[in-house]
Design a protein around this nucleic acid. Structure first.
Length: 186
DNA sequence: AGGGAGATTTTCT
DNA sequence: GAAAATCTCCCTA
């Protein structure tokens, strides 16, 4: 796949995380490894921000959350449950601690590599945030990297806007009433 | 097919 | 010291 990064307009990422989380459905996310592109279409996201007791940024800037408080368009990777990585796209302006968790995507490139990393399964390869990171090879070292710089690519949807559903978020115990999770309806 | 527990370590209180 | 933006396996139906 050949890509011209510089013509992709990512200015919408500077909006608040709730808006961005909905808009990101249908965009395509890839990681470049040598000559291989690994990734696909984003189908599930969740918004987090400072007003949100379930968010890492709720208690302010810490060594871990400083990327969330930076400018939009960067990757925030965190480690959790003693064994998993999850990746976010930082949103809003510098000084605002907000990001969108990428929970699931439909792979369309580098699928053979993904399968190898996921124990040669054929199904449910990237339908959860930790699986997705394993599939794309995302880890600590990717925290703070910039989108569409060299390694990570975020590309516009290829087809018409999908129907998007808003639902409660997953795996949190605070602020569970917020409909801040978005999924593609097909 | 659905629920529960275990794995395992960073992070902040 | 406890909880954590999770996943997989193993159990019961």
């Amino acid at each position: 796949m050949r890509v011209l990064n510089e013509q992709v307009d990512l200015s919408f990422l500077s909006a608040n995380s709730l808006q961005v989380a909905e808009q990101l459905i249908g965009w395509r996310l890839y990681k470049r490894e040598g000559s291989e592109l690994i990734g696909g279409t984003i189908v599930e996201t969740e918004a987090y921000d400072q007003s949100d007791a379930a968010s890492h940024s709720y208690r302010g800037v810490t060594p871990r959350t400083k990327v969330m408080f930076g400018p939009a368009g960067y990757i925030y990777v965190y480690f959790t449950y003693g064994m998993h990585y999850c990746m976010n796209i930082v949103t809003d302006h510098a000084g605002v601690g907000s990001a969108v968790l990428i929970r699931a995507l439909e792979p369309d490139s580098g699928v053979d590599i993904i399968q190898a990393r996921r124990g040669n399964r054929h199904d449910n390869l990237t339908n959860g945030p930790a699986k997705l990171c394993l599939a794309l090879g995302v880890g600590r070292e990717d925290n703070g990297k910039k989108l569409n710089n060299s390694e990570f690519l975020l590309l516009p949807p290829t087809r018409a806007k999908r129907m998007v559903l808003a639902t409660p978020r997953i795996g949190i115990t605070k602020d569970t009433h917020r409909l801040w999770r978005f999924v593609a309806s097909d």
